[in-house]
Write a protein that binds this DNA or RNA. Sequence first.
DNA 1: AAAAGCAGCAACCGCTTCGAA
DNA 2: TTTCGAAGCGGTTGCTGCTTT
Length: 295
Amino acid sequence: MGCKSSEKPIKPKHRKGLWSPEEDQRLRNYVLKHGHGCWSSVPKNAGLQRNGKSCRLRWINYLRPGLKRGMFCKEEEDTILTFHRMLGNKWSQIAQHLPGRTDNEIKNYWHSYMKKKVAKAEEMKAHIKTQYTSSSSDINMDSSPSPKMSAIGVPIYNSVLGHVGKSLKCTDQESVPQTCDFPGDQANCSNFLPKVLFAEWLSLDHVHGWNNIADSGEGLISRSDAPNSHNPNFQFTPMHGFSSNDGTYGGQFHNVQSHASSTEMFNSQFKFEDQFISGDDVCRDFNMNNDVMYI
DNA sequence: AAAAGCAGCAACCGCTTCGAA
DNA sequence: TTTCGAAGCGGTTGCTGCTTT
């Protein structure tokens, strides 16, 4: 937050509506190369006739690497249901538990699909309930043992609650993202490696072993604790997933996603660029001294 | 084949929160 | 402490393509 006031642009006429492929390309190229920094200056620097807000949204919802497209798998639906019950319409918070999905996507999915599904199921439930109460006063639906069925008729409590505090791992191959989110085959993914790391890629919940670290208070790094600050005890093992053994950070990222953890802590502790400059464990394909920007 | 209706999704709008000056 | 600008968030709108009549 807080861009230099000197960067305040003269109000240009901003384009609206759908983004053209050229605009996408410009924005993608610019952000991958420079990072977004202050969004209000992005359109100017990238040569776009959009406002910063629009650029930000386009990036977050569409261009950002690591985004999963396509149908939601059953596990994702379960997760949405569970967290929606817990959090309500806190789409961004729900999205934190669905790697590769945006809040906008989840919101749309909810409004266009799941809301109806849930309503229908509730209706059915009510119908069954009235049938039961009229036929047997002994049966209390609400106090009966855990139904193991969600409102949409899928086994939810066990499977879904298992996702709480643990990561999501889809088994539905149709909807599971390919291990590379970049054009071309996986072997060529490294060609597309950007020189920027985004906080979203490290989203939360998905870094191995962080519960323990968070619980113990160990491994919490601050600027002053970062390896460059000559802290010999520093370790960055949670980032092993990015070591790019197969040259595809997307795949590694996906694997990393399979592990549980503390989102808050991870987010709050890894927001500084210099914290990424952590030596061999991190992103071997990157030139940590020159190339990496963490946003 | 054309028009109307509908659903899905991308993008916009306005409010709130946050942080720097 | 106040003010102001940027970012974040959720609700809403509007476009597009598909289906139905």
